[in-house]
């Protein structure tokens, strides 16, 4: 009904609607072609490639490439390393942002505004900038070490070039989106609902677990997915801050491709995509549900 009202005006309907259909499709055609050429086609051809081997008898279906990946200890170790640290980073970033979102939900004033602004700051900082900055801040003889020594703490060992280095940068980078998403979720719980619960004698823990948390399920899922998808395929942060071995999959793929072994890089990419697809599927499903319920 609303769409009918907003539709541009025509004399007596039908022909006009047809015209709109063509115009609409024509206008979205160009970016759609880009999406097909640069996303759909390469992905499909890549997946198809990894499931085939080309031998003397031509192209044949085979799982040999995947078998090779999983037979290689170093590859498996990289995959395991990537997943473990991605999940740890997600958990940390999600916990911190939940804490921040809760604090921001129940606070107001200048301090809260500043904390809000600080938590969104990473949105404006590209990965390459923060990676370099982290090297200088957390690295050996970096500013953080200097500050600790000034207050008398001398036992600092730098996380630079250890798995903890990229982990810290991941958490730093990942804060804003879950804070935004969780804040939006918390904003849907009215003050009245919380006051009513408090009137009935509910303590902070009960209010959190029984009133806020159920409302936040979807937001938490979306927050987790956003962080996971951002971290799992990252390159710059682990490249600059991480240990030489094991490698995150992004770094590994880049090196494989750089060594002119595109077929192996494809296998690595397909495996990573499959992992991401599980999380991405949850993300898309939750997003669809949210859009429907809006």
């Amino acid at each position: 009904m609303v769409d009918d009202l907003t539709a541009p005006v025509g004399s007596r309907g039908r022909g006009q609607m047809m015209g709109q259909g063509f115009a609409g499709l024509a206008l979205v055609a160009a970016p759609l072609v880009l999406l097909i050429v640069l996303v759909l086609f390469p992905t499909v051809s890549m997946v198809a490639n990894t499931f085939h081997v080309t031998g003397e008898g031509g192209r044949a279906f085979s799982l040999a490439k995947f078998a090779a990946f999983f037979a290689d200890d170093y590859s498996v170790e990289n995959l395991r390393y990537t997943l473990v640290w991605t999940v740890i980073s997600c958990g940390t970033a999600l916990s911190i942002s939940l804490g921040l979102a809760l604090y921001l939900r129940f606070s107001e004033g200048r301090i809260a505004t500043m904390i809000h602004a600080l938590s969104l700051f990473p949105l404006f900082v590209p990965a390459i900038v923060i990676s370099y900055a982290m090297v200088r801040f957390l690295g050996p003889n970096g500013l953080f070490q200097l500050l600790l020594e000034k207050v008398g703490f001398t036992g600092y060992t730098t996380p630079y070039l250890t798995p903890v280095g990229p982990y810290i940068a991941f958490v730093w980078e990942s804060l804003p989106l879950p804070v935004l998403v969780l804040s939006a979720g918390l904003a849907q719980v009215s003050d009245h609902a919380i006051e009513a619960a408090r009137d009935l004698g509910a303590g902070p823990v009960r209010i959190f677990s029984q009133i806020l948390l159920p409302q936040l399920k979807r937001s938490l899922l979306i927050g987790f997915a956003l962080i996971f998808l951002g971290v799992v395929g990252s390159f710059t942060v682990p490249y600059l801050l991480g240990p030489p071995a094991p490698e995150m999959m992004g770094v590994y793929m880049q090196r494989t491709l750089g060594n002119m072994r595109p077929e192996e890089a494809q296998v690595q990419a397909v495996i990573l995509m499959a992992v991401a697809a599980i999380v991405g599927g949850f993300y898309i499903a939750t997003m669809l549900r949210n859009q429907r319920s809006r």
Binding site: L35, L38, V39, F41, P42, T43, S45, M46, N49, A225, L229, V232, G233, S234, F235, G250, M253, L257, P262, A265, Q266, Q268, A269, V270, L272, M273, A276, A277, G280, G281, Y283, I284
Partner: peptide, 17 residues
């Protein structure tokens, strides 16, 4: 939804093509 695919893997697939 294209957002839900890790960009780096997309770039790998494009690079091969």
């Amino acid at each position: 939804a294209a957002n839900a695919v890790p960009k780096f893997t997309l770039f790998v697939s494009i690079a091969v093509v």
